[in-house]
Amino acid sequence: MSRAEATTDSVTTEPTGGAVRAPRPLWTFGLLRSELLTTFRRWRTLALLAVLAAVPILVGIAVKIETSDGSSVGGGGPDGGGGGPAFISQITNNGLFLVFTALAATLPFFLPMAIGVVAGDAIAGEANAGTLRYLLVAPAGRTRLLLTKYATVLAFCLVGTLTVAVSALTVGAVLFPLGDLTTISGTQISFADGLGRALLIALVVAASLVGIAALGLFVSTLTSSGIAAMATTVGLLITVQILDQIPQLHAIQPYFFSHYWLSFADLMREPIYWDDLVKNLGLQGLYAAVFGSAAWARFTAKDITA
């Protein structure tokens, strides 16, 4: 907190015009940096990242063992290869597909759950630990603090997704051959192009989590119990995932934040099929706007008692 104190001093020595003192722009980055450090130094965060990194390792080893006798994944047959996450039948031919499979396997639950934990903890966790009021003592303003918290959660979305992707790429390179790959449209692209698409897919997956991050942050402003906020966010996630499977609800399903999540696979078509991807990103932006502003409305008007 030495930096924060220094900034506070410098601000208070300036003559102040109104009730709100204008903090220096750099202060935001200082706050963001300290938030990032706090978040990524937590054991909880590291454990979540370790779980995310373990998923591709498990998938890779399982596929390796299953196909070690030369059989194909899923056992073939008339409807063969229908089971398992997307792209799993391709892994043995090209390790790069493990990246796509791992992201498809973690996106429905592991990744959003990790985001839910971090986002739910963002405000409510501070309130729970009694540190929220100290954060607000610094002349950052509540809006700025909220934005910093949201930026931290988004950074975790990106780091979490990249953890899965990098772990999957490493495992894929170790266990399986690499090389030119075939898109799901049947055309061939070079390995470099494939790597580019893998990076693009990782970014799209990270962007797909923007919606639940905003939702988690809003929930986090509602309560002063970190556990309650995390449980609510993850509970909402599971509820929405279940509702998305009920065919009778097809009229409202396009508005669920998770509805277009798996559209990232459209990036593996040739040419890329943008319709669902655009819908997904638009929907995430909408969720971020609605729940972000709701979180702002709640947080800036709330009595902070802890």
Binding site: S72, G74, G76, D79, G80, G81, G82, A86, F87, S89, Q90, N93, A104, T182, I184, S185, G186, L262, A265, R269, Y273
Partner: peptide, 28 residues
Amino acid sequence: VSLLENAAEYSLIHNGKDVWGYDSQSNE
């Protein structure tokens, strides 16, 4: 002609003499 499926695609390609059907889901 490609039939777009969930995270998979079925393509029927006619190129000169060859007719290929490719099911990306089962890699057949």
